[in-house]
Design a protein around this nucleic acid. Structure first.
Lengths: 340, 340
DNA sequence: TTGTATGCGTTATCAG
DNA sequence: CTGATAACGCATACAA
């Protein structure tokens, strides 16, 4: 089927392209009769505006790009759902890219999005991202940017995140109140801010409760394979510390679930012998045995909010309204289950 | 930062836009010296072609659209990863849409993609989709379309799927060989083809092994909340049949996991008292207790293959090569664990 | 109320 | 080897 253009409608009706264009957009300076004529024919011919032409002319694509580290991930899937919902409301489409926790890819993808002419960009940084030139480039180009969850403190743009430090602090404090004293931490990579903050929250909770911080209880998990990392480090933990450890605070649920699987296999009782606390509250955590206590991170809401802010900044930019960057903290909650 | 155009480069160099354009594309009829000059300046000015103009001119967007029923879903996430990987190789971007198992939304989203001018479309149909006019519209417009996993038999386009009937047959046969005789089926909605096929595979396995098919053992789960559906129907199943049921073949893992959770709660032993078999092999299934036997559906591969076919059809269309629609069956495998 | 002219940034044809 | 010109489809300032 041929796609129809304004020109064709104009010709068939003996009108000018201008009039047709205006008629379809309900300009006040077109007669009712003409409007009707035009609209009817447009309908009949299944006219749809050519989006490339519109974008070229209007300098906007009604498209936003989003880069996340990994797709197969409960939290990020939820975020995307939130973004999708907001975008749909405002008639925006989203282009999805996955950085695979690679800085190189992330950088390349930023370029792709810029070249594509997206109206705005949403990013959750890869764990490996230290150099931030690609983000600065986005800003220099005047493209609205919102960072969410895995952010870079020094970049001057809006951010949507949680208070990782506080959430970690609360989780670890809870473990302490339950009587645990030798609490290990399965932390993430050394680089990402939220990995750092969760570690700091863990440490502060210990100190505030007069428990000595023991760095030998901290295990770095950055092999990009959280389940097995959790499993293996659980083994290592027991080997290293034997009975001298009674809980684990893991930087994410998958790590904790890996550990639980190790303990189940070795008949090490959870939570009696060793308690666990996760982070992110994956659905999975509610159905395993024992169910895992975790921190609800409200991915959907984070996605919604991020998109809202981005869309608003796009709007402001177009209208020439000054943009005030925001930093939104999404609340977290402890979700207590049977693992502690 | 201002975005630079061919015109600007041309002006600064005292050349024509044409020459600049050609130089950047390494046309043979431009002198080496000019090419160098142009390329250097283009580099310096961070020139990137305006994608809207290119799309308008070339009538292609280097973009494909994908519609899936739900985002937060292990299988579909995997599919998307596969699609993303293939698309990236060929320099295509993907626009993601979620139908939320709603026919209305799916239809609307098809329109959006058409209007957006994507070069091709990938769809896994919603459970509610019966009317197929929107798919026909895509085809009528000459836009390459590939259906995957949840397909419509009667639509004339390429398809990538599994042999649902065979996979179900194998799973149920396995249960029978294990000695189970009263095997319930938690099936999906009545409409989707793969729900039907899995049911038929289940039924055929029973009949082929001389086990009477008992329709009261079939439970329809279509509340769009699989975990709870599984949980609730497990309760119902026990209420209805008491000891007179010894296994469940569920149309997907989440349903089976819901049932397992019910059984765990009620201290009904799995697999001793009742065995379970799932479908799709979600990661979750390997970490729950007891771990769930399931059918590996190779989502990543399905995504890769679907994208390959689509991209190829796009290529053929552009080159005027006749397109031969394909129907690819991706192999499945029984993954045996502790639930049976 | 309608139409003319112009430009958005490319690419392609064809002439010089 | 280079460039003028047209065209892709639309939107808008301005003229009639």
């Amino acid at each position: 089927m041929k796609t129809t253009t304004l020109k064709e409608i104009a010709e068939q009706l003996g009108l000018s392209v201008t009039t047709v264009s205006k008629a379809l957009k309900d300009y006040p300076d077109v007669s009712k009769k003409t409007k009707e004529l035009v609209k009817n024919l447009a309908d009949k011919l299944n006219y749809v505006p050519n989006s490339f032409a519109v974008s070229l002319r209007m300098k906007e694509s009604k498209t936003i790009g989003i880069i996340i580290p990994t797709m197969v991930h409960y939290f990020f899937s939820k975020v995307i759902e939130g973004v999708l919902k907001e975008a749909e409301k405002k008639n925006y489409m989203i282009i999805l890219l996955q950085s695979n926790e690679s800085y190189e890819l992330e950088k390349k993808q930023v370029d792709l999005l810029i070249n594509k002419g997206v109206d705005g960009i949403l990013i959750s940084l890869s764990n490996k991202t230290k150099d931030l030139e690609h983000l600065k480039k986005i800003i220099k180009r005047g493209i609205p940017l919102v960072l969410f969850d895995k952010i870079a403190k020094t970049i001057n743009c809006s951010k949507v995140l949680i208070d990782d430090r506080k959430a970690a602090y609360e989780a670890v404090s809870f473990l302490i109140q339950k009587g645990h004293k030798r609490i290990a931490h399965f932390r993430g990579d050394l680089n990402p801010q939220n990995s750092i903050d969760r570690f700091l929250g863990y440490k502060k909770a210990l100190i505030d409760h007069n428990i000595e911080f023991d760095s030998s209880l901290v295990y770095i998990c950055n092999n990009n394979d959280d389940f097995n990392d959790g499993f293996n480090n659980a083994e290592k933990l027991i080997k290293d510390h034997g009975k001298n450890v009674d809980a684990i605070f893991a930087v994410n649920d998958l790590l904790a679930i890996g550990a639980i699987n190790y303990f189940n296999k070795k008949k090490i009782k959870v939570p009696e012998r060793i308690a666990l606390f996760g982070f992110s509250n994956w659905f999975m955590s509610s159905v395993i045995t024992p169910s895992l206590s975790s921190i609800e991170q409200h991915g959907f809401k984070m996605g919604e909010k991020s998109a809202q802010i981005l869309l608003n900044e796009i709007y402001c930019k177009q209208k020439g309204i000054k943009i005030e960057h925001q930093k939104i903290i999404i609340d977290t909650e402890l979700v207590l289950r049977n693992s502690c």
